[in-house]
């Protein structure tokens, strides 16, 4: 899962491509969701939309799990695991912060939790780059 590196292995490529696709799907849903009017569809339709929004996240977790199980380089596995923890940490920090802000000041704003996957992946990628940069 090395980023911005021309010498990526087939395993890295097999992991990066689907994750980028999941991120695009999630980004598309995030852009479309606020346009869906409240109360326009039945309750089950909204549940369906919510379930569709979850699918890229499940897909990303499967890709990451597959990467970690197939990566033979234990140091890379260690770095990716640490980066994932940073990614999850950043999601919790931003979610908690925005949750309180939205609840207190912007109660009618669209759900910002839709950006969770993007925040997770971007934070994880930055953490991985920093860790790899320290060990050149």
């Amino acid at each position: 899962m090395r980023t911005c590196n021309k010498n990526i292995s087939p395993l890295h490529r097999r992991s990066i491509v689907p994750i980028a696709s999941m991120m695009s799907i999630c980004g598309g849903l995030t852009a479309v969701t606020p346009r869906i009017e409240r109360g326009h569809f039945s309750t089950s339709t909204y549940y369906g939309i919510a379930l569709i929004a979850v699918l890229p996240i499940i897909g990303t977790m499967i890709v990451i799990a597959r990467y970690l199980s197939q990566e033979t380089d234990e140091y890379m596995r260690h770095l990716v695991t640490q980066s994932i923890l940073w990614g999850f940490g950043m999601v919790m920090v931003i979610d908690t912060f925005l949750g309180y802000v939205v609840q207190s000041y912007l109660p009618h704003t669209a759900a910002l939790t839709a950006l969770n996957l993007e925040i997770f992946l971007i934070a994880s990628a930055i953490a991985l780059r920093i860790q790899m940069g320290r060990n050149q």
Binding site: T72, E74, N135, Q136
Partner: peptide, 22 residues
Amino acid sequence: LEVSRQSVNAIETGKFDPSLPL
């Protein structure tokens, strides 16, 4: 060793302790 160069560097500099098999 069939690992990345970064792995060798991390082990050499003591930043990472290898597993028993490695």
